Simulated assay, not measured.
Amino acid sequence: MGTAAAGADGVAGERRQLINVAYRLLGSLAESEDAVQEAYARWYALPRSRQDEIVSPGAWLTTVTGRICLDVLGSARARRERYVGAWLPDPLPDHAEWEHGHGTDPADQLVLDESVTMAFLVVLESMTPAERVAFVLHDVFRYPFAEIADVLGRTPAACKQLAASARRRVRVERTPATAAGQADTVRQVKEAWETKDIAALVDLLDPAAVMTADGGGMVGTVLRPVEGGARIARYMVAIADKAPGLELLERSVNGVPGLVARRAGAVMTVASFEVADGRVTRIWAVRNPEKLGPWCGTGACTESGS
Rank of each mutant, 00 (worst) to 15 (best):
A5E: 12
G7N: 07
Q17T: 09
Q17Y: 08
Q17C: 03
I19C: 00
A22C: 07
R24M: 07
R24D: 01
S32D: 02
E33P: 00
V36P: 00
A39K: 06
A39V: 05
P47D: 10
S49I: 12
P57H: 01
V64N: 03
G66N: 10
G66W: 11
C69T: 06
V72R: 15
A76S: 11
R82Y: 04
V84I: 14
G85C: 09
L88W: 03
L88C: 07
P91N: 06
L92F: 00
P93Y: 02
H95T: 03
A96H: 10
W98R: 15
W98K: 15
E99T: 07
T104L: 01
D108G: 05
D113A: 10
E114K: 13
V116A: 03
M118F: 09
M118K: 09
F120L: 11
V123S: 10
V123Y: 03
L124F: 09
T128A: 12
A130P: 00
V133E: 01
A134H: 04
A134R: 07
L137C: 05
D139C: 08
A146S: 13
E147F: 12
I148G: 02
A157S: 10
R167D: 10
P176V: 14
T178H: 01
T185E: 02
E191F: 09
A192T: 03
K196W: 08
V202R: 10
D203S: 09
A208M: 13
D214A: 06
T221M: 13
L223V: 08
L223Q: 13
A230I: 05
R231C: 06
I232Q: 07
A233C: 08
V237S: 02
I239Q: 09
A243R: 15
A243Q: 14
A243K: 14
E247L: 13
E247F: 04
G255S: 06
G255E: 04
P257L: 11
P257H: 03
G258M: 12
V260M: 11
G265E: 10
M268A: 11
T269C: 12
S272N: 06
F273G: 11
V286L: 10
R287N: 09
P294G: 13
W295K: 11
S304W: 15
S306C: 13
